[in-house]
């Protein structure tokens, strides 16, 4: 069972305690944006087979949103961080690079 550590309350929560919130770091496009931008924001997804950044809510715990880096092919979790962070920290990216050299996710990536 998938277990994530909530960065807010520090609890190691299994997935029945959490609710998944889909892809992280989406830039919101609202009224006034182009059709292409709105479509991209609403529907187009990275959906990678490999390292992925995603949103979670500690629904049956502290109730707060956080983000996680996880490999979708193996469910290996690289780390979690508060949803207020606009980008994953370099230390987290280095952790991903250490086990998945050459990974890419949007314009985040590790050196091969």
């Amino acid at each position: 069972m998938l277990t994530l550590t909530c960065p807010h309350c520090g609890v190691q929560a299994d997935e029945t305690e959490l609710s998944a919130g889909g892809e992280a770091h989406l830039k919101r496009f609202g009224p006034g944006s182009s059709e292409e931008e709105l479509e991209g924001y609403l529907f187009a997804r990275e959906n990678p087979k490999g390292p992925h950044f995603e949103r979670w809510r500690h629904a049956y715990g502290c109730g707060k949103w956080f983000l996680a880096a996880r490999d979708t092919a193996t469910n290996q979790v690289f780390g979690t961080y508060p949803a207020s962070e606009a980008q994953p920290a370099d230390t987290l990216r280095d952790l991903v690079t250490a086990s998945r050299p050459g990974w890419m996710w949007r314009d985040f990536g590790g050196e091969a």
């Binding site: 187009a44 997804r45 990275e46 959906n47």
Partner: peptide, 18 residues
């Protein structure tokens, strides 16, 4: 299930989650 992986090779994104 692997459509997004192939789409990435072909250079576009799909509105799909696996």
């Amino acid at each position: 299930g692997h459509s997004s992986v192939l789409a990435q090779m072909a250079g576009f994104r799909l509105p799909i989650e696996s």
